[in-house]
Simulated scan of single mutants.
Amino acid sequence: MRFPIVSHACTLYCLVHIVSFIILKVIDWTLGLRLKDEQEREGLDITQHGEQVYE
């Protein structure tokens, strides 16, 4: 009786990971998940928030 429960848990675990991967890929293709290299070098505070943390 224990095998069906483990089997369903493994199936659900795999399904969640596959769906999450697909969602992340769609977001990456449409909006992008990373900033441009220039924005990363300049600093995220200035490019994203318009604030300067360290002077």
Rank of each mutant, 00 (worst) to 15 (best):
G50M: 02
F21V: 04
I18D: 04
I18M: 10
F21H: 06
H17L: 15
E40N: 10
T30Q: 12
W29M: 11
I23A: 13
T30F: 07
Q39Y: 05
L33M: 08
H49L: 15
S20G: 11
D28F: 01
L24C: 08
V26F: 07
I22V: 15
F21G: 11
E38G: 02
L24W: 08
I46M: 08
I27R: 10
E38P: 00
L24F: 15
E40W: 04
H17E: 13
I23F: 09
D28W: 03
L15W: 11
H49K: 12
D28N: 14
H49D: 03
L31G: 05
I22R: 11
F21E: 06
E40F: 01
H17A: 09
K36T: 07
W29Y: 09
Q39L: 02
V19S: 07
G43L: 02
R34N: 11
Q48R: 06
L35T: 03
H49M: 10
G43A: 01
T47A: 07
K25H: 07
E51F: 08
L44V: 11
F21P: 02
R34L: 07
V16A: 15
I18R: 08
D28R: 01
K25I: 12
W29F: 12
S20P: 01
R34K: 12
R34V: 03
Q48V: 13
L24Y: 13
E42Y: 03
E40P: 00
G50A: 03
L31W: 08
W29A: 14
H49T: 05
I22W: 02
L33D: 04
L15D: 09
V19A: 15
G43W: 00
H17Y: 13
I23L: 12
I23G: 00
L35G: 07
E42C: 04
L35I: 01
G50Q: 04
Q39V: 02
K25N: 05
E38N: 06
V16L: 12
Q48Y: 04
D37M: 06
V16Y: 13
E51H: 11
I23C: 07
V19N: 03
L24H: 05
I18L: 14
L33N: 11
V16S: 14
L31E: 10
F21K: 05
H17M: 11
K25R: 15
R34I: 03
